[in-house]
Amino acid sequence: MAGTLAGLILDLDGLAIDSESTYRAAWRAAAAEMGYRYSDADWAGLLGLSGPDVLAGLANLAGDGFDQARFRQLSGEIWLAQVETDGIAVKPGLPELLEVAQAAGIPYCIATNSRAAAARRSLAYAGLAETFPLLVAVDQVARGKPAPDVYLAAAGRLGLPASACLALEDSPVGVAAAVAAGIRCWLVPSSYPVDALAGRQAERVLSDLREAADFISAARSLPL
């Protein structure tokens, strides 16, 4: 899909920062403490979903008796203790990607299925508190991903039509949201194997954000 790139929209969890691994670790620990065991396939099926949808998915897998309130509190306590000690890692290539965007005069915005306060907190633990002044979160729109709302709102925040933007995503849910918004999308998977449908929907499947930075840098004067 050719076109001029005027704006960049990035997913947050699993794409810009490695927060998804911290969430999964906390969720696994909380589930184990409550006596539940989930498979890797179970966790993979929750990739990219909003917090309430993750809870609903875990409850559905567990069956009757799953205490969502206790799980939310316990996993939150475990997560906070973990990130206060270890922080959250920035995904490889993010600094290079933002440097290329800034040099090319391409504005960027976060579009996330996290709530705004949680997203800002995660960015702070990653050392990026001031890096993304533009951010659209799931609690600022009517519907979360895979609905297109956060992406349409992010394009609006950039002051651009959807067709002039490029989305970078790591999950099938996120790719579906970007495509539904009419935004071309590059997939940078945070888990393997790559989801077949997401791989077909995405314009490119990349190994990391460095590769995205290289493509954008090479295409500054050319249609992408």
Rank of each mutant, 00 (worst) to 15 (best):
Met1Phe: 07
Leu158Val: 01
Glu96Trp: 02
Ile78Pro: 02
Leu80Asp: 15
Ala155Phe: 01
Asp13Ile: 09
Ala164Ser: 15
Gln73Arg: 15
Thr112Arg: 10
Glu99Lys: 12
Ala6Phe: 03
Met1Gly: 14
Ala32Met: 03
Arg115Phe: 10
Cys185Arg: 02
Arg37Asn: 12
Leu10Asp: 09
Ala147His: 14
Ala153Tyr: 00
Gly7His: 02
Val136Leu: 04
Val100Pro: 08
Gly63Thr: 01
Ala162Cys: 14
Glu84Leu: 08
Ala181Gln: 10
Ala81Leu: 13
Arg120Ser: 07
Leu168Val: 14
Ser39Arg: 07
Ile183Leu: 03
Gly14Asp: 12
Pro172Met: 10
Ala6Tyr: 03
Ala162Gly: 13
Ala218Ser: 14
Gly3Cys: 11
Val83Arg: 04
Ala119Met: 05
Ala176His: 11
Leu197Met: 01
Val136Lys: 13
Leu98Val: 10
Leu80Val: 12
Phe71Gln: 03
Gln201Ile: 06
Gly57Tyr: 09
Ala137Ser: 14
Gly174Val: 06
Leu5Thr: 06
Leu47His: 11
Ala164Phe: 01
Tyr151Pro: 00
Glu211Ala: 14
Asp86Ser: 14
Val205Pro: 06
Gly182Tyr: 03
Val205His: 09
Ala89Tyr: 00
Phe132Asn: 04
Leu168Lys: 02
Tyr38Asn: 05
Gly14Phe: 05
Pro172Ile: 08
Leu166Ser: 05
Ser217Asn: 14
Ala117Asp: 15
Ala181Leu: 00
Gln140Trp: 11
Ala196Gln: 14
Arg24Tyr: 11
Asp195Glu: 13
Glu20Leu: 09
Ala155Asp: 05
Leu224Gln: 11
Arg184Val: 04
Leu128Thr: 12
Leu80Glu: 15
Glu84Val: 00
Leu58Asn: 05
Ser21Met: 06
Lys91Asp: 03
Met34Arg: 07
Arg204His: 13
Met1Pro: 13
Ala154Gln: 08
Asn113Trp: 02
Gly93Ser: 00
Pro189Tyr: 07
Gln201Leu: 15
Tyr36Ile: 12
Asp139His: 02
Leu97Arg: 07
Ala41Cys: 02
Ser171Tyr: 00
Val141Gly: 08
Ala212Phe: 05
Arg184Gln: 13
Leu15Gly: 13
Ala41Lys: 12
Gly63Gln: 08
Leu8Gly: 04
Ala6Lys: 15
Ala116Glu: 15
Ile9Ser: 10
Tyr192Leu: 15
Gly156Ala: 10
Val54Trp: 06
Leu123Glu: 07
Leu97Met: 03
Asp214Pro: 00
Arg24Phe: 12
Ser190Tyr: 09
Ile88Trp: 08
Lys91Met: 11
Pro172Ala: 10
